[in-house]
Nucleic acid binder design. Structure first.
Length: 463
RNA sequence: GGUCCCGUCGUCUAGCGGCCUAGGACAUCUGGUUUUCAGCCAGAGAAUCAGGGGUUCGAAUCCCCUCGGGAUCACCA
């Protein structure tokens, strides 16, 4: 049975797209193998919690279609799925390690540790705890009994730690390069290291697929697994999404919160499709495919080691492809949902065919179609000297009886010829008169939708 | 700085010792369609496969070194 998980921390306003990227792989791997995909909230840092962050995160994940089989929302056999509700579990396990002499109490003050680190760095040594408390455990225990605050540290043995990564192969690290990690904080909360290891084990996670940033701490986790006497899950460390300057994707260079993309009218399907192409490619070279298809053919072993640059331009291209494939009815509903209920459905529906292939994201609709709902108040071209011209236009338009795009077009073409004005010039002036803009959906069709009276009114305004 | 990871067009990638005078996609540029903008169609430029050494009849593909980039070193995750 395959069980995967993502373990986000609610320390931001929403899910990071990078998290969605690894979530997608976890989801795909679980589903491909008829397993379960789990969401566990790692909220053990009380100082960095963002109110509402967890809720938004879970909602967004759900909204884009990455449904969890077990999570704080849907529950599951290993509940609770929120670490702050599992404190007793971690404490018990930490104490167990102390009993086994694999971990020890420490009451060293942060000031002393800081000073020590500074000294070590000054002589270019690896900053490491000096194990003072390890060598004075009995004395320390007495102080703790009397109420002294303490943490629990993991004892890192002096030996080579070797593990296999599904994506990167065998990785070796010397234990002597590692610091004795704090696994239980003085506030009783576990640190990440204890939390993940205990929960991944108890929740029977088989594949730990997570960001590359965790690679350096994986040896510490291995030590923990060994200290508990537990067998290891399989590890797969996925490369981090990058900014154009190759640094880790950050809000300075790109929107990083998933909701920021959804709010621009990027479709969840397109986002997932694009993200799936970061560090992985379809065996047939296809670029557009469904989540369902991805799940079927995804394989961890095909995941690339290099860290990809996240390209919002290609994302938008792909989103445009998705938009163009939609049925008018379905695009209409999406546009309506996006722009709000104040716009008349009938007109939105009629305008969709005119703009569908011009849109890259839902947010492109309104700038293109605003004029259908509101007469222009400003004009992108100065039309003040063209009163005579517009008078002629009004005269001809008034005589158009069947108000259809073709009839309007023919009448206007004829007038252009009569006036000896180039089509491009003629229609640009008319376009700006009707829409206010130099760029618009096809004019004749737009005028048809707008109705005769409305068009006449707009043109007359310029006479 | 220590440790670990990575290195094919601007970007995402294909490539798994001969099919590579390195393929596709986005972006860019040119032409066509045209009443603007898109879209669509056709085409172009763009990678000494980071560099240097090996191994081999043969290397983008295997090995070594150098360089470059990134991640990480907290009572943060």
């Amino acid at each position: 049975m395959v069980r995967t998980r993502i373990a986000p921390s609610p320390t931001g306003k929403d899910v990071h797209v990078g998290s969605v990227s690894t979530a997608l792989m976890n989801y795909a791997w679980a589903k491909k193998n008829d397993g379960q995909f789990i969401i566990r909230i790692e909220d053990t840092d009380q100082t960095r919690l963002v109110p509402g962050g967890e809720k938004r995160m879970l909602e967004t994940l759900e909204a884009i279609g990455l449904h969890a089989d077990e999570s704080p929302l849907v529950g599951g056999p290993y509940a609770p799925y929120r670490q702050s509700e599992r404190l007793a579990v971690y404490k018990k396990h930490a104490e167990e390690l102390v009993q086994k002499r694999k971990a020890y109490y420490c009451i060293c003050k942060p000031e002393r540790l800081d000073e020590m680190r500074k000294k070590q760095q000054a002589v270019k040594q690896i900053p490491k705890y000096d194990r003072y408390c390890y060598f004075h455990q009995e004395e320390i225990k007495n102080k703790i009994v009397k109420g002294e605050k303490y943490v629990i540290r993991l004892f890192i043995p002096n030996k080579k730690i070797i593990f296999n990564d599904l994506i990167r192969g065998q990785i070796e690290v010397e234990g002597s390069n590692l610091d004795d990690q704090i696994i239980l904080k003085s506030d009783g909360y576990p640190t990440y290291h204890l939390g993940v290891v205990v929960d991944d084990y108890l929740m029977k996670i088989t594949h730990v697929i997570r960001g590359e940033e965790w690679l350096p701490s994986t040896p510490k986790h291995i030590v923990l697994y060994e200290a508990f006497g537990w067998s290891l899950p399989l590890f797969a460390h996925v490369s981090l999404l990058r900014n154009p300057d190759k640094s880790k994707l950050s809000k300075r260079r790109n929107p990083v919160w998933t909701s920021e993309y959804l709010e621009k009218g990027i479709l969840p399907e397109a986002l997932l499709n694009y993200l799936s192409l970061m560090g992985w490619s379809h065996p047939e070279g296809k670029e557009i495919f469904s989540l369902e298809e991805y799940v079927k053919i995804f394989d961890i072993k095909d995941v690339q080691k290099t860290a990809p640059v996240f390209d919002p331009v290609k994302l938008e291209w792909m989103n445009g492809e998705y938009l163009r494939k939609l049925k008018v009815q379905s695009l209409k509903l999406k546009v309506l949902g996006f722009i709000g209920k104040n716009y008349p459905e009938g007109i939105v529906e009629k305008t969709i065919p005119l703009v569908q292939e011009r849109m890259k994201k839902l947010a492109d609709y309104l700038p293109l179609c605003e004029f259908f709902f509101q007469a222009p108040a400003t004009w992108q071209v100065d039309l003040s000297g063209k009163k005579d011209f517009f008078n002629r236009v009004v005269g001809v338009l008034e005589k158009v009886n069947t108000w259809k795009a073709t009839a309007i077009g023919e009448a206007m073409q004829k007038l252009a010829k009569e006036l000896n004005i180039k089509n491009s010039q003629f229609f640009m002036d008319l376009r700006v008169a009707i829409t206010g803009k130099r760029i618009s959906p096809p004019l004749n069709e737009s005028m048809e939708i707008l109705r005769k009276e409305e068009c006449l009114e707009r043109v007359k305004k310029l006479t």
